[in-house]
């Protein structure tokens, strides 16, 4: 921590030009989230949903012309349910700066690393107003551990290859992988190896999850990091309930706003 009045350096973006203040909005969002209420607020049985506000770090200029009452420039909604030893994910990520609204559907095995299983799909709608309005993409893992994608129904393309022993998951499954592996990561010293298919499109091999530190401000949080080739370092903070409360890169911060559903 920098001093008693500041947040952690990995998500303290209370830059003077930001109005409203980043810290105020981050803490307000976290305080608005009541885990006790959240756990009772079941929607569909055995479906767990986390909702995150996306805040811009440093400069709100990326949300030019937007809502002046909030820094929020997007929302991420992560839903998953377990069925037949598979976790079925449905992720919605809306970003008012890019104009993109991504909907991702994928499955993972019910294992600690949540290995990604074939097939998956991405549907993107773009509201930015130029010629690009939508995109569909489906993907699967070929038998030779090659990631293959089909964009707009056209011929398949190879999106990367890995060895069969690589533990591949999706970055959106890390919201479960990190809580599940928390003790393993903490005990590992140098961290644990993992591969990530970022947004189900970009293969990031040779990545690592490690433990950062525990802090008390703004609430008790345990910090983890993810870094690797082609990835910008990201910092993942678990609250006392084992939920990812904050995810921060140098560029943006996701703050837990709402949780629904029973833990399975």
């Amino acid at each position: 921590m920098n001093d008693s009045n500041s947040l952690h350096w990995s998500f303290d973006y209370n830059y003077g030009a930001q109005n409203p203040q980043f810290a105020q909005e981050l803490i307000g969002t976290l305080r608005g989230y009541d885990p006790e209420v959240a756990i009772r607020g079941t929607q569909t049985p055995q479906t767990i949903t986390h909702v995150y506000n996306v805040l811009p770090n440093y400069w709100r200029g990326y949300s030019r012309g937007g809502d002046t009452e909030t820094l929020r420039i997007g929302t991420a909604v992560i839903e998953r349910r377990k069925n037949d030893n598979l976790w079925h994910y449905s992720v919605k990520y809306e970003n008012t700066t890019s104009g993109e609204n991504l909907q991702m559907q994928f499955c993972c095995s019910d294992e600690n690393y949540r290995p990604l299983r074939s097939n998956w799909s991405i549907n993107v709608r773009n509201s930015a107003g130029d010629e690009y309005s939508q995109l569909t993409c489906t993907g699967y893992l070929a038998s030779d551990s090659e990631v293959r994608l089909r964009i707009n129904g056209n011929p398949e393309i190879a999106a990367g290859r890995m060895s069969a022993s690589v533990k591949l998951t999706c970055n959106w499954a890390l919201f479960d992988v990190i809580p599940t592996l928390a003790r393993t990561i903490q005990a590992s010293g140098d961290g644990v190896d993992i591969a990530v298919l970022e947004d189900l499109e970009q293969l990031r091999l040779k990545s690592k999850l490690g433990f950062l530190e525990s802090i008390q401000t703004p609430i008790p949080l345990d910090g983890y990091y993810l870094y690797g080739a082609g990835l910008l370092p990201s910092y993942w903070w678990l609250d006392g309930h084992g939920d990812v409360a904050i995810v921060s890169t140098f560029f943006e911060t996701l703050v837990l706003r709402e949780k629904m559903g029973e833990d399975v």
């Binding site: 030019r64 008012t96 700066t97 890019s98 773009n126 930015a128 130029d130 010629e131 690009y132």
Partner: peptide
């Protein structure tokens, strides 16, 4: 002809 130029 502009394919994509961001929301803003």
């Amino acid at each position: 002809q502009t394919l994509y130029y961001g929301q803003q």
